[in-house]
Design a binder for these strands. Structure first.
Lengths: 267, 267
DNA sequence: CTAGCTGAAATGTCTATACAACTAACAGAT
DNA sequence: ATCTGTTAGTTGTATAGACATTTCAGCTAG
């Protein structure tokens, strides 16, 4: 028997790092390990090799490796415990942030085909509450875009979007029936939503809503009021969507309150 | 003029670090700066001193300081740009994760006084779908706890909580009308919810629901089906809550999709 | 006056090392 | 058998320094 300079074969052995690439090393590692996790090569409960072993395999320093691991930890993919080791977390616990989706994106994710029918576009005088939200002057107007949203050709929601004219003058020239409102805002005006705030409630539909949504009798509607903000904190859009209660439900993913750097503010 | 060993006075000057404390230095810094942000001493847009200056003020190495800053960055409190500097972000953009709240916590946050009236507790045979979720054997039972939830003494929701008997044998002995279910689970059984998944829909109430909730005519209800998981990924609880549509709405905070280490899985 | 260059300044990335704190397992004494 | 100390192995914290990359402003040449 010859003393071989062996290294245990692990799923990590195949990972190759390019130190001269433009993407940082820690990102390369995080992505490589992340795809091992996503592909199911590493199952929940799998114990990762110790950091120092991985450092050697990848040929990087420990701080760099830990930077990669911290990314994976942040997303809830792995769980490191001092004195013990690092394991792969159950996929149910992977903490995907609650993400904004446009109507179209959401429908497509559910496997449907989104559609739209434009009902009206107006330049209106905002109600006082709306004017306050957008911090508008007395005479500034807002676009009010009313659309019927379809799923596989069937009416699913009635949507009223409100955007200040100041942010996107000339918006009415675009084909709002066919194009995504968010795409127009981003590509033609450089306006990009960053966060949003939704209030979800249940209501009995009005007779007009019942007609437009082709609602059967004794059906409730799910009403979602959404405020959208840009990355500088300014409000971008205020939307009220009325969904058919028999065909739509909203899904929310939450995590247990985690220690925050901030004190809990009494709002 | 004498060359003074000056250091510009900043809000950071007052921060003192105790290197021998049991809390790590980077946490001390993060908390100190975090409270400057929370208290409004540093307003959105404020440009922080460069990292190297802060290092010197705190007497720590740059990596340590950056570890503190990365915590603040993760929560969306600050925004660092290479080549430019670091600024305080608008408070609207602070990304508090969507957090789980118990009924009581939520009501209290809204300024109300939560209450509860126990309707029934049963050891029942789970429906097949429920049995599958909890991965139970043929003969294992689940607790079904039905409660009327009150806000300031008024009926607000009808709640049916389902928990496997296996996880918390003897649960019926506790005072479920007065105590929080989550507190009992955590303190007496060591069961701690970690994440949950809610599906929110709108329905027309049944006549029984109308009676129990004292619902006025022509009112819809908001139905929330919640699955709760523990930190090992096992399901803990399945709850169906029926809220008065005229007195309750659910609030959700979302952020724009951020680059993930994982590829988007086509679910 | 403009276009382009240049350099200062800032954050981003990475290394190599050291020690601390914690855990689990083992050996030995009681 | 049980308890206790010890030890090896692991992640957590922290340092000091080096170089890369990006941005912005000011200077310079045209």
């Amino acid at each position: 028997m010859v003393a071989a300079p062996t290294q245990k074969i692990t799923p990590f052995s195949s990972i190759r790092i390019d130190k001269d690439a433009s993407t940082p090393i820690y990102l390369q590692i995080a992505e490589a390990v992340g795809s091992l996790l996503a592909s199911g090569v590493l199952l929940p409960g799998y114990v990762l090799p110790p950091e120092r072993v991985l450092c050697e395999q990848f040929g990087v320093s420990r701080m760099t490796l830990r930077q990669a691991m911290s990314l994976l930890d942040r997303e809830g993919l792995i769980d490191s415990r001092r004195g013990v080791g690092t394991i792969v977390r159950p996929s149910r616990l992977r903490k995907h942030q609650q993400e904004m989706r446009s109507f179209s994106e959401e429908i497509r994710e559910r496997g449907g085909h989104p559609g739209s029918r434009l009902i009206s576009v107006e330049l209106a005088i905002p109600a006082p509450a709306v004017r306050d939200l957008f911090e508008l002057h007395e005479k500034q107007r807002i676009y009010e875009i009313q659309r019927l949203r379809l799923n596989d050709g069937e009416p699913l929601a009635l949507e009223l979007a409100r955007i200040p004219e100041r942010l996107c003058p000339g918006l009415e020239r675009f084909d709002l029936a066919r194009s995504s409102l968010y795409e127009i805002l981003e590509q033609s005006y450089g306006l990009r939503p960053e966060t949003c705030n939704e209030e979800i409630s249940a209501e009995i539909p009005s007779s007009q809503q019942r007609k437009l949504l082709s609602l059967p009798a004794r059906t409730a509607v799910l009403v979602i009021n959404r405020k959208t903000y840009m990355d500088d904190g300014r409000p971008l859009e205020l939307t009220r969507s009325v969904f058919r209660g028999d065909r739509y439900s909203s899904v929310v993913h939450s995590v247990r309150k985690n220690k925050s750097i901030l004190q809990a503010t009494s709002s």
